[in-house]
Design a binder for these strands. Structure first.
Lengths: 352, 352
DNA sequence: TTGAAAGCGCTACCAT
DNA sequence: ATGGTAGCGCTTTCAA
């Protein structure tokens, strides 16, 4: 394992000084063209590469930013990462991506590691376990800019990019109500999650707006997952006064609910409407395709990086950007013929 | 933007030498406890952090590895990345993840960037465009270990981790044949892709094994995508002698084919069987759930890192590891009642 | 146009 | 137990 070639090596071989070699490679004006030529040739031949640590040691800016996510393999995060990456590369930055695995302790470690790397800034989405944010505060001491996205903390001290959880849930619920649904089931994740609280708020708000009585039995908040979606929907369909629509907070919940409705022998959307926060690319996987609230992950990533870069460049302004979700109505939430006037005399044959 | 605190700063403030401070912080035996105490207290107070560049400059091993993937947001890659990450962290390594966006030029740049970072090693999955691998050869000049995974190159010179494309396709095809299918459609991506070639090979091999005549019309290799799966399946079902089963090389192709079968008014698996290379978590999204060949992404990631670490530690052995896919039989490929005894008097019952 | 030298922050070796 | 010093590879003065 031999040592990489250094400027010194080149200088010695050429019998000139290190400074000259350095300047020649930088194409400095104060070096003769002949010398430049000679140096470049040898550098290429010897496969010289500048040592980035020496450069960083001098400049103290490695052009790296750190990204902390709860989980890399989830599409939502990986697509945001991808967008951040693209934006970063465009500005000459590299990214170090670390995962907290939804764990407070690991997240703490991640922050430490990134500080030790002297990243120029950090983009973070906090883990589900995190309620204390002091491990992020050390970044302020180190003068390392921090921007949160999606799940945020320290909102008075750092910029953030979030989605419109309240509004999107409200919009989705309103959409169902406008199409004649009266008993909308809300199927979410654990109650303590911010995202669940906010969306529930939007859901309830829509019900109030439309003067629909609120029924606690229609709200099921447990965990996220296919089976849980199936169970929740099954239960809501078995009520004396059953649900005629569902708003599901995740993709797996939505597909679980889909299955439950079908297994019950009910039709979508004729008997039960379904809408969920799911990925565009999966909406067509079933028939009818699912109406979906979709996150604009590319926007989230791009905006987050933009805010961070601003801070890196010295801005101290604290900004909060909201990236709205997009509602795409597909077959699962709207009856084919028209709105909702045909409750009784059904003419539509079993579709599919 | 003030300069971070250095050892020198601490030393001056305490009126001792830099060496002493350095030793005290390393808990060296040759420093008095009183001094250690004093130094540590001040370090904490001043929020001292060792400068990683200075350390790396000295040691020349930043404990970073680079990962090059064609696309971060695809579950297959992100889950492999996640596994690599976990393995790396466990060994005290950090990872830099870069994406080639399936582009040769960007990939070339990625390699350059990682070299410039002096990563200790690189794990790479080449882009679809890449057919020339000389940009990877420079790594050998720089003594930077390189291990390919999934899509490989330079196989005589570097270790790699691949999946059993031929065998898995053969197994999947055999599974369909054993269940009485005769006209299995092969729906793949672009013909020039290695993965397509290999799997087609496995498919054809299975047909030969079972003495089923090969029909070129049943092989459709275009692009990957939901619509393309839909089209391909529609076409194969419209043949004079139509398909009675499909092997789809990707998730989107499989779901597209699923839709096509249904739209044609055919039943799955009674009329047409379906099997595909899809993610476990999505297999249940439809009814019947999809039989699937699944990649063991965790294994791929873990093994890749292991091989790389070995090389970093000095091994020059070139290894090739094959991580098999796993066949999980679900409703889409096997008729409920029994295998296929109605077709002909075969004795093998449906295996599962 | 070129060279010499200082210094970035740290470790490690040789003194004391 | 502590201090001094060299040197990692590079950039950037200042001198020649």
């Amino acid at each position: 394992m031999k040592r990489p070639v250094s400027l010194k090596d080149l200088a010695e071989e050429l019998g000139v000084s290190i400074s000259t070699v350095s300047r020649a490679l930088k194409n400095s004006g104060e070096v003769s063209d002949a010398m430049k030529e000679k140096v470049r040739k040898l550098a290429k031949e010897k496969k010289y590469r500048p040592n980035p640590f020496a450069v960083s040691l001098l400049k103290n800016s490695p052009r790296i930013i750190g990204i902390i996510v709860p989980d890399i393999a989830t599409y939502y995060y990986s697509s945001i990462i991808s967008a951040i990456n693209q934006a970063a590369v465009k500005e000459g930055y590299s990214t170090i991506i670390v995962s907290s695995d939804e764990t407070y302790e690991i997240e703490k470690q991640c922050v430490e590691n990134l500080i030790n790397f002297r990243v120029e800034g950090i983009l973070a989405c906090v883990s589900q376990q995190t309620s204390d944010f002091s491990h992020f505060e050390v970044l302020f001491d180190q003068n390392i800019p921090l921007v949160f996205f999606d799940r945020v903390g320290l909102s008075e001290k750092s910029s953030c990019v979030i989605t419109d959880n309240v509004e999107s849930a409200q919009t989705a619920t309103a959409h169902l109500l406008e199409n004649g649904r009266k008993r909308i089931g809300f199927i979410g994740g654990a109650n303590h999650l911010n995202i669940v609280k906010l969306r529930k708020h939007g859901y309830l708000q829509a019900l109030r707006d439309y003067k629909i009585p609120i029924d606690k039995d229609l709200v099921v908040c447990k965990e996220i997952g296919y089976e849980l979606g199936y169970e929740a929907a099954s239960r809501l369909l078995a009520l004396a006064n059953p649900s005629d629509a569902f708003l599901c907070l995740s993709e797996s919940l939505a597909f679980g609910a889909f299955k439950a409705i079908r297994d019950k022998g009910l039709r979508i959307p004729d008997d039960v409407a379904l809408i969920g926060y799911i990925d565009e690319i999966h909406a067509d996987y079933v028939s009818p395709p699912l109406s979906a609230m979709t996150h604009q992950t590319a926007q989230i990533g791009k905006t987050s990086f933009k805010l961070l870069l601003k801070q890196i460049k010295g801005s101290t302004e604290i900004e909060k950007k909201i990236i709205p979700c997009i509602l795409t109505v597909r077959g699962s939430s709207v009856k084919k013929a028209a709105g909702n006037q045909l409750e009784a005399p059904k003419t539509t044959p079993a579709q599919e």
